[in-house]
C-alpha cells in the first residue's frame, strides 16, 4: 500500500519567485515524516509539490524530480489526476464540500473514480469513517451536512474523504492548526493508526506535535525574506530534537530563532 518517495533537487517557483531550492529527501514507506520550520520557509510548498497541487496556482511550477517507487510523477506522460489519487492531501482548514452530506463527502473521491454501486460506496464510507475514528460519532446522521460538524470532526471527515480512495501517501498541511487541543489529540492518535497503511508527511508549526507523531523530521529554513527555502537537516525525529547536527536546527527547536 505505502510507497517510498524520493525528491531530488526539487525547486519550486511562484512566477519569478523561487520558493524552495534543491530539496533532497527520501521518505520511507509507512512512516510519519514531519516538515518543520519558520513561516515562509517553503515546507507547505514542498508538500504541495509532492502531489502536484503546487502547479494549480497560476504561474507556479516545479523543477527537479520527484519519484514514487521509482516512477517520476513529473514525467510528461503521467496523468496528474492519477498522481493526486495516489497521493491524498488533508488541508490546513477543514474543507468538507459544503453542499454535500457527511456520506457524500466521504464517497466523493470514489464517485470521481466512477464507482456507482451503492453497496461498494456504503462499505467504503463506513471503512473510511471507522479508520478516521469518526464512525461512532456520525453513524446515525450520515445524511446531514458535513459542514455542520465541529472543526475537529470536519477535519477527520476530510481525512476519511482522503483515505476512502485508498491512496499510497497522505500529505497533511498543518492539519491541526485550526483545531482545539482535544481534536488535535484525536488527529494525532489517528496518525499513529494510519501509518500502518500509509506513508504520511505532515507539515506542522507545532514542534511538540512533530516530536510526538513523526519518525523522521525535516527542518526547512530561509536565510532572509525573499530567499528560497532550503532543507537544513533531515534525520530521525529523536535525533533532531535531542542532538541536532546543525546549529540552525538547534536554534529553532530551542526557540532561539523563528
Amino acid at each position: 500500500m505505502a510507497k517510498r518517495i524520493e525528491a531530488s533537487n526539487v525547486t519550486a517557483y511562484y512566477g519569478a519567485f523561487k520558493a524552495i531550492e534543491n530539496i533532497n529527501i527520501t521518505v520511507e514507506p509507512k512512516t510519519v515524516t514531519a516538515l518543520i520550520g519558520p513561516s515562509g520557509c517553503g515546507k507547505s510548498t514542498f508538500l504541495r509539490s509532492i502531489n502536484r497541487m503546487h502547479e494549480v496556482l497560476p504561474g507556479a511550477r516545479v523543477e527537479g524530480s520527484l519519484t514514487i517507487d521509482d516512477q517520476d510523477i513529473y514525467d510528461r506522460d503521467v496523468d496528474v489526476t492519477a498522481v493526486r489519487r495516489m497521493i491524498g492531501m488533508v488541508f490546513q482548514r477543514p474543507n468538507p464540500f459544503p453542499t454535500m452530506s457527511i456520506y457524500e463527502n466521504v464517497v466523493a473521491g470514489l464517485r470521481l473514480n466512477g464507482v456507482r454501486k451503492k453497496s461498494i460506496l456504503d462499505e467504503a464510507a463506513e471503512k473510511a469513517l471507522r479508520s478516521a475514528n469518526l464512525w461512532d460519532e456520525v453513524m446515525d446522521r450520515l445524511g446531514k451536512p458535513g459542514a455542520g460538524l465541529s472543526g475537529g470532526q470536519q477535519q477527520r471527515l476530510c481525512i476519511a474523504r482522503t483515505i476512502a480512495v485508498e491512496p499510497q501517501v497522505v500529505l497533511m498541511d498543518e492539519p491541526c492548526s485550526a483545531l482545539d487541543p482535544i481534536s488535535t489529540l484525536a488527529i494525532e492518535d489517528l496518525m499513529f493508526q494510519l501509518k500502518d497503511k500509509f506513508t504520511i508527511i505532515i507539515v506542522t508549526h507545532n514542534m511538540q506535535q512533530a516530536a510526538r507523531v513523526s519518525d523522521r523530521t525535516a527542518f526547512f529554513s530561509i536565510e532572509k525574506t525573499g530567499d528560497p527555502g532550503r532543507l537544513i537537516e533531515y534525520d530521525n525525529t529523536q535525533k533532531i530534537f535531542s542532538n541536532p547536527s546543525q546549529k540552525k536546527t538547534e536554534d529553532y527547536i530551542t526557540g532561539r530563532f523563528g
Binding site: M53, G88, F91, F97, P98, A108, L112, N113, V165
Partner: peptide, 23 residues
C-alpha cells in the same frame, strides 16, 4: 479550499467544477 479539495482527490478540471463549483 473546496476547489483544491476536489483537485486533490484526483478530479479533472471539469470534475472539480461539477463536484465543488456547481453545487
Amino acid at each position: 479550499a473546496n476547489e483544491e479539495a476536489a483537485l486533490a482527490l484526483g478530479a479533472t478540471r471539469w470534475e472539480m467544477l461539477r463536484t465543488a463549483v456547481l453545487p
